[in-house]
Design a protein around this nucleic acid. Structure first.
Lengths: 136, 136
DNA sequence: GGCTATAATGAGAAGCGTTCGCATTAGTGT
DNA sequence: ACACTAATGCGAACGCTTCTCATTATAGCC
């Protein structure tokens, strides 16, 4: 029952929100743009406005249900927040995205923040490269 | 003689390019948006179009004179490339930007890329936090 | 279970940073 | 100095995102 998840997050259980959450949970792609979600809704025969998709995703982000990543070119992609933090490595040729997590890097970041007098709130790390397939 | 630098970079030494390079070199701020550069030109009484600023900065980037960073909110900032690589730590309250460089993190990144089968081309790392001043 | 206050929605317009198209202007090599 | 080509300036167009506002749906009370 999705509506419970939404209520827990402090959000009214409206139809668009439930549908969008469904899309995010059932989509094979972990990383989706607002446009992707919108298209998936249309393909499912749902009547939801693009503006609503943006609003809902922003609310999901604020509620911690979803993480927003700022990609180059000025567009955002969203990813279900399943609790475990990770960073991304992506292929500059085909756009493939992989995930990784490295304790050493995480640790160093905190150390650096401390050295510089910052109270760290978050970070964003992307490695760009050419994936195995595209190297051939 | 700036024009030499431009020629070396394979760019014609035009007035707008020289002026923009000057701004970047003489500005107290290491990190400038296209708009910032544009404003600085206007304040200096120069007649340069905003489109040209964007074009020139993009060319400078391609030529390796400048580095472009994609900030949240969909706008880019540019920074003179003085050869030594570094990453950024920034304050989410006041927008202050500091730089750092960590060999351990650099190394781990290469290792991760290798593990994942990627041929690394670049990376982008931002640490977000609250700076000393804003913590008070 | 219906009813009302209130918050959420949809559609299109507007906003923002950035890029494009094209006629005009300026730099370069001879 | 000249002609060829590339660079510029302007405004219009772009893509993504957010806003506005009238309409619709939800939550809580009776």
């Amino acid at each position: 029952m999705e509506s419970q998840d939404l209520k827990k997050a402090g959000l009214k259980a409206t139809l668009p929100r439930i549908k969008i959450l469904n899309i995010l949970e059932s989509s094979p792609a972990r990383h989706m743009s607002a446009e992707d979600v919108y298209k998936a809704l249309l393909e499912g025969g749902e009547e939801v406005g693009l503006a609503t998709v943006y609003r809902v995703l922003t609310q999901f982000e604020a509620a911690g249900l979803v993480e927003r990543h700022h990609f180059e070119g000025g567009h955002s992609i969203f990813e279900l927040n399943d609790g475990d933090h990770h960073d991304h490595i992506l292929c500059v040729k085909c756009g493939r995205v992989d995930e990784f997590m490295d304790d050493v890097i995480e640790q160093r970041q905190h150390q650096i923040a401390e050295e510089k007098g910052y109270n760290i709130t978050s970070h964003s790390l992307y490695i760009f490269g050419i994936c195995r397939k595209c190297q051939k």
